[in-house]
C-alpha cells in the first residue's frame, strides 16, 4: 500500500525530470556549440575546451573568417536582417494593436464589426500561409511592394489583427460598462469615452496583445521568404538561408539560433501568464 504510493510518486517525478531533460538538452547543446571553436564542432561533449566568440563575430563580419571555418560562400552580415525584423515586427504590431483595439471595443460593446469581419480574421489564422502567399506575391509585384518594409508590415498586421481583437476583447469585456455610461451621462462623446475611459483601463491588455503579436511577427518565415529579397530580408529568412545554403558552419549556425531566440524568449517570459490566452484567441484563460 505505502510502497505503491512511493513508486507512483517517484515515477511521476522521473517522468517530469525526463521531460525537462528532453527540453533542456538541445538548448544546452546549442548554447555550448555557439561558443565552441571550429575544432570542437563535431565533438561528443558539451562544455567547450577553448570557448570563443568567433561564431558570433563571423555573423556580423563574415568577410573576416571566410575560408578559415571551411565556409565557401560569403553570406550577408546579420545586422541588416536583425534591424529589419525589429522595424517590421514593431510597426506591424503597433498597427495591428491600434486597428484591433477599435474593433475589439466595437465587438465587446456593440456587436460591430459583424461576424464576417471576425470570421475572416480567424480564417487567416486557420489557413496555411503557403496557400495565400502566392496571390499576395503577384499583387505586391504589381503594386511595387515586393521587398519593401511597408509590404511586410501591412501583411503582418492584417494576419495578426485577429489576435489583437480577441485578446483585447477579453480585457475590455472585463471592464464594467457602468464607468463608460457614467462618463456618457456627463456628456462625453462616444469617442471621448473610448479614448479617456477605456483606453487607459485597457493598457495592460494592449501590452499583452502587443508583445504576443510581436512574438508572432518576429518568428514568421514563409511570407518574408516569398516577399523579400535583399532590402527587407528578416531574421528568420536570414537564418533559413544561413542554415540551408552555407553548409556545415555549425558554430555560427548555433550562434545565429541564439541571437534569434533572445528577443522572443524574453517576451515570452514577460507574458508567460497570458500565453494560453494568446494562443487560443482568448478561448482559454491562463
Amino acid at each position: 500500500m505505502k510502497w505503491g504510493r512511493i513508486v507512483v510518486t517517484s515515477l511521476k517525478y522521473i517522468i517530469i525530470g525526463v521531460f525537462i531533460l528532453w527540453v533542456l538538452v538541445p538548448v544546452a547543446w546549442i548554447i555550448t556549440l555557439a561558443f565552441k571553436p571550429y575544432q570542437e564542432w563535431r565533438v561528443a561533449y558539451f562544455i567547450p575546451k577553448q570557448p570563443t566568440l568567433d561564431n558570433f563575430i563571423v555573423l556580423f563580419k563574415p568577410e573576416v573568417f571566410t575560408g578559415v571555418m571551411g565556409a565557401t560562400a560569403i553570406v550577408e552580415p546579420v545586422t541588416k536582417p536583425l534591424i529589419n525584423s525589429l522595424v517590421v515586427s514593431a510597426l506591424a504590431t503597433v498597427l495591428a494593436v491600434i486597428v484591433g483595439f477599435f474593433s475589439a471595443y466595437g465587438a465587446s460593446r456593440y456587436n460591430t464589426p459583424g461576424p464576417f469581419g471576425i470570421f475572416f480574421t480567424l480564417l487567416t489564422r486557420m489557413l496555411p500561409p503557403a496557400t495565400f502567399v502566392t496571390p499576395i506575391m503577384v499583387y505586391y509585384a504589381n503594386l511595387g511592394l515586393l521587398d519593401t518594409h511597408l509590404g511586410l508590415i501591412a501583411l503582418y498586421s492584417s494576419v495578426t489583427v485577429t489576435y489583437a481583437i480577441w485578446i483585447l476583447k477579453g480585457f475590455i469585456d472585463a471592464i464594467p460598462v457602468e464607468w463608460e455610461e457614467a462618463a456618457m451621462l456627463e456628456g462625453a462623446s462616444p469617442t471621448k469615452v473610448l479614448f479617456k475611459v477605456v483606453l487607459p483601463l485597457v493598457r495592460p491588455g494592449l501590452v499583452v496583445a502587443g508583445l504576443f503579436i510581436f512574438l508572432l511577427n518576429w518568428t514568421e518565415l514563409l511570407f518574408a521568404l516569398v516577399l523579400t529579397n535583399i532590402n527587407a530580408v528578416t531574421l528568420p529568412v536570414h537564418i533559413s538561408k544561413y542554415v540551408g545554403a552555407v553548409g556545415q558552419l555549425y558554430g555560427p549556425q548555433a550562434a545565429l539560433a541564439l541571437i534569434g531566440s533572445i528577443v522572443p524568449v524574453t517576451i515570452g517570459y514577460i507574458i508567460q501568464k497570458h500565453l494560453v490566452t494568446g494562443f487560443t484567441f482568448g478561448m482559454v484563460r491562463g
Binding site: W29, I30, L33, I239, Q253, A257, G260, S261, V265, L275
Partner: peptide
C-alpha cells in the same frame, strides 16, 4: 514554445 520555428529547425538540424 517561445522560440521561432526557424530556430527550432536550426537546433534539430544541428
Amino acid at each position: 514554445l517561445m522560440l521561432p520555428p526557424v530556430v527550432v529547425a536550426t537546433i534539430f538540424y544541428l
